[in-house]
Design a protein around this nucleic acid. Structure first.
Length: 295
DNA sequence: CTCCAGGGAGCCT
DNA sequence: AGGCTCCATGGA
């Protein structure tokens, strides 16, 4: 099925594993859990609806700056470049900007060095919105499980040689689900939020405003979306790289490593963090989040 | 058994 | 604006 093969060369480092396993997206699966070993780079798979076409992707690290892609579609290369921000930003310059603002030899420098190649992802709006509505009060591993449940129950199918892959459902597909249906898929109290948000998204034909404050406000109109979920959507789907989602991990990290930026509300912590790290503060947040979870 | 997880809605002041 | 309680579910 994956007859098209491409190699993508980035202008600086790309770390596929840390990018896809740092809680930015829940749309990928590691396909070779059994075969995965330190000497063999893992393969990550995903499947998407793209202009009435179902595009399957297999992506694997093939060098410090390059990825190897297999796809069933000629769109696979462009889609992958778009997801990983190949032509959108220069990661090395962003890292320099972050380190320059935090010149002390501390945790941020350590995190950026240790996880060099971790990129901010650019995933589709609707799947990202639903994913992070599901993320509240839930462990990262279980969020992944919930999203896979939604995919296999409501998404389009792509048959491959060894299994069937599922795309994240389009709004029209997910709108068939009732609250009871989603409770059966273990979404808990988020079921009502997902159903209502899907209906709103579907009926309004929603598009994201260019202005960051308007964009945040419009996303928060959806049911189940507060400041933190909205900021995740802005950063991981909207390309607003200054945005700092503050969750329990970032809150405790700021309290521990940046006490001068700490405050009693998460909104204030986000503002302080953004003022300190500047227009790429979202990247700094991603490095810090991954560092905290890994150590 | 209790506690908690990438928070948010509803309601209160 | 800011504080409080409840919200499903499963693993530690």
């Amino acid at each position: 099925v994956y007859s098209k093969e491409y190699t993508i060369e980035f202008n600086n480092k790309i770390d596929l594993k840390n990018t896809l396993e740092s809680g930015q997206t829940f749309l990928w699966n590691r396909s070779d859990n059994d075969m995965y070993s330190p000497t063999k780079e893992p393969i990550y798979t995903t499947c998407r609806n793209y202009n009435e076409e179902i595009v399957g992707l297999q992506v694997q690290q093939s060098g410090d700056n390059s990825l190897k892609i297999r796809s069933n579609s000629e769109l696979g290369k462009e889609i992958t470049e778009n997801i990983f921000g190949k032509n959108k930003y220069n990661l090395q310059n962003i890292q320099k900007e972050i380190i320059k603002r935090d010149s002390k030899d501390g945790v941020m420098k350590d995190a950026v060095t240790k996880y060099d190649g971790l990129r901010i992802i650019h995933e589709p709006l609707f799947p990202t919105l639903i994913s992070f509505i599901c993320s509240t009060q839930m462990r990262v591993e279980r969020i992944h499980q919930m999203i896979n449940n939604l995919k296999s129950n409501y998404g389009s199918e792509l048959e491959t040689s060894d299994r069937i892959q599922y795309a994240f459902p389009k709004p029209s597909q997910l709108s068939k689900a009732t609250i009871e249906d989603l409770r059966d898929l273990k979404l808990g109290y988020r079921s009502e939020y997902v159903v209502k948000t899907t209906t709103m998204f579907h009926s309004k034909d929603f598009t994201l405003p260019n202005d960051i404050n308007e964009a945040r406000k419009s996303i928060k109109d959806f049911m189940g979306v507060g400041t933190k979920v909205a900021d995740c959507v802005l950063l991981y789907s909207g390309g607003f790289w200054s945005v700092v989602p503050v969750d329990t991990w970032i809150e405790s990290a700021v309290e521990k490593y940046y006490p001068e930026l700490y405050a009693n509300s998460n909104e204030q912590i986000a503002r302080n963090f953004q003022d300190f790290f500047g227009r790429f503060a979202g990247f700094a947040q991603a490095y810090l989040f991954h560092y905290m979870r890994k150590n």
